[in-house]
Nucleic acid binder design. Sequence first.
DNA 1: CAACATTCAATGTATAGACATATATTTGCA
DNA 2: TGCAAATATATGTCTATACATTGAATGTTG
Lengths: 151, 151
Amino acid sequence: MRIEEAIKQNKPFSSEFQKSIVNLVYTASWWNQVATRLLRPFGISQEQYNILRILRGMGDQPATIKTLTERMLDNNSNASRLVEKLKKKALVERLECPMDRRRVDITITAKGLQLLDETSKIMESDMHKNFKHLTEAEAQQLNELLDKMRG
Amino acid sequence: MRIEEAIKQNKPFSSEFQKSIVNLVYTASWWNQVATRLLRPFGISQEQYNILRILRGMGDQPATIKTLTERMLDNNSNASRLVEKLKKKALVERLECPMDRRRVDITITAKGLQLLDETSKIMESDMHKNFKHLTEAEAQQLNELLDKMRG
DNA sequence: CAACATTCAATGTATAGACATATATTTGCA
DNA sequence: TGCAAATATATGTCTATACATTGAATGTTG
């Protein structure tokens, strides 16, 4: 569905630029809903899922809050509080860093890894289901345009 | 900056599809920050701004909560509560609809219109500043790909 | 080394999104 | 007509974002 229909806009946009912004926000919101519903049965939010993925990607190395903040998709979200919630579910561990006591070393637990394996399998298969409309070449083009859009 | 650098991802993405999703979410968050900071001096949020724009677009016709919900970019947001906040700032008016007392007719006030004129001028000029990297043709291509992405 | 600046994480306080539920109307149809 | 279903909005609760502030630990520099 074209963006104009999606938001029932009658008037034309004042420029393709304007339309791109609206389309970006709308599409992100669309994906957000898809992802939220997929993750809900597993009891974690997208942001928590994202943190688990970053931690898994670190291998044996622990991450600090700072590392997480840098790598999160939305780096204004509050890594501290998200980690706290993951810890309550025993999905991550938090240890004071011995080298620098300001820091906190965060690692994913076995339980966290297991949950992540399950969910990421489902997430990825659903992604491909949702993306059957875009070819690999189109996805690549989209990536280039989005990168360029940010300047 | 390419998305891999932006989120400091070392490993390659498992597919362009995956990368597109990450890029979409990241770019939306980037825009969100830009817009939030632009609007902050005016004391309204992006969502409130969006509602004011929809109301202005209605011309003389009032909008109901339902109309707003349908047209909002994120239609899970809570139009009721957003309208309540705008009303507190005297930017909108809310009247019980005489035809159907379940409904509420919402209109933008003169004060709301004035605020919107100021902010939208600034928003649009900043949009163009932020978009100087994309040509009109590229913006159009981006729109097509985003529409297609949603299926 | 002491004083000051910087860094890292946590927290307080707004606002908003996700979703279930409540409440008041209106509609539709037996 | 009467009553169940549908509709429009509001609200409760949890989660997350935005941003300022705090407080502890560490760096830096005179």
